[in-house]
């Protein structure tokens, strides 16, 4: 039997904002759920995040943004991924954002978003389902 490759996730904190409680809790929950988790640490430029994602060959980038810059950062990450031919990497995220903004970001290509009151288990469930579906398709 071929051993199944673990889903690899890059948890990233873009920009200057230091509110990393959510990013760290989510990173730990995802690790406990059996995923392979890489956490970038703080103050990452979009270019650094995408470079790390490509280099580490991750399946998912999870961005945590509480600074109000989500409408700039998410599109920039998507654009950089496309430029690198890495649009297969799913971009997800969480933080302080309005429902309207979440809809706009998803229309641009962000795979899924969670607001500040979300359950971390919803993220785990989403990733599992997403990759099950991928495998069926693959």
């Amino acid at each position: 039997m071929v051993s199944e490759r673990k889903v690899r996730i890059l948890v990233a904190k873009p920009g200057l904002d230091g509110h990393d409680r959510g990013a760290k809790v989510v990173a730990r929950v995802l690790r406990d759920a059996g995923f392979e988790v890489i956490y970038t640490g703080l103050h990452q430029a979009p270019e650094q995040i995408v470079a790390t994602a490509v280099q580490e060959d991750v399946d998912v980038i999870g961005l945590s943004i509480l600074s109000g810059t989500h409408m700039l950062v998410f599109p920039r990450i998507l654009e950089l991924l496309r430029a690198q031919g890495a649009e297969h990497i799913a971009v997800i995220g969480g933080g302080t954002m309005l429902p309207k903004e979440m809809r706009e970001l998803k229309a641009m290509g962000v795979a899924e978003l969670w607001g500040v009151d979300s359950s971390t288990q919803d993220i785990v469930t989403w990733i599992r389902q997403h990759f099950k579906a991928e495998q069926r398709r693959g």
Binding site: G15, L16, D17, A45, S67, G68, T69, L72, V73
Partner: peptide
């Protein structure tokens, strides 16, 4: 704002999108 807190001027590339935001 975050750039002021972190020691970047408003015209620094690292400040992009964060000037006067928070």
């Amino acid at each position: 704002d975050m750039p002021t807190l972190m020691g970047y001027d408003s015209d620094d590339p690292r400040a992009l999108g964060e000037v006067g935001r928070e």
